[in-house]
Amino acid sequence: MTPTQEVLLSWAADRLRAAGAAPGGDAGDDGVSAVARLRAAREALAVAAGGHAAVCVLADLDVPSWMAEVFRFAVKVPAGDGEAWRRALTRTVFLSGRPANLRERFAFSHTSADGSAAWFGPVPAAAGATLRRLLKTFEGTQPFEGLPEGAVLRLGSGDGTAAAVGPGAVRLPGTVQSPGRMTPVPEPITFAPAPLSCVPGHSAHVPGSVPSLPAPARRSPVHRELYAATAGVTLAAALVHLHHLLVEAVADDLLAPGDRLTLRSAPRLSTVTRPVAALRADTDALHPDQLQAYALLTEEI
């Protein structure tokens, strides 16, 4: 499937409908006005939802590792909060901050094993106001360099094994370019074991706790590809797109513990021909009257 404007509009409208809005921007409508209607519906939804939001606090960043943590955060979101958050289109604020310095003042829903990232909420936006006042918006203005091509992200299985990267043990380059310096990650990326036995929709639990109930019945693990667009995309924007895609895919049971993701990048995703299971479309920065696919999940490969 090639994500044409019609397809993109359809995905975007479906997403709004899933959140409870009535976009009226279906494929077949006039393209320009459909995008405008989608935007208006999205803005109306943000107001009506009362601002349920999550906060992602970032001290450091390696995108594939962070994606694994997004998954682990998403599977912990209690059903009630998750539904309210979905109605607010899984709005997430990205802030710079050091989780270790904040943990005594704020009860994070999830903190990454290496302490580089933590999530607060999702909660009504007012509940995160103190955190937002204390921290600053994450300014990832560097160009997004893409995901490590072909690396495999194995999402933590229900029996407690960690999320891991690689088909068996693929090493990620794990480097982030900076002006004047390169910060290599010397060791293969590993993730500390954390049991992931809760799938939204199957059971709910308090953030931060690990349910001791027997693992609910689940579908068989699947293997998908995850594509991210890179052309004209900043690091901060890529995080936004990937976060929406991942947390909504978890809520829709498209991603669950035991699944595998092969990571792919391309300047734009119009060349992707595989069947799409989930797609993140947003306004095309260069063509504001069009949509662009910024991240997508394929059907099982």
Binding site: S96, G97, A100, N101, K136, F138
Partner: peptide
């Protein structure tokens, strides 16, 4: 926090004492 490699600033961090980050 040194976030220059991501295109961000260096932020002075005394948030453990309740003080806001400062670029």
């Amino acid at each position: 926090l040194d976030q220059r490699r991501f295109g961000g600033p260096v932020l002075l961090d005394a948030t453990a004492h309740g003080l806001p980050l400062r670029r």
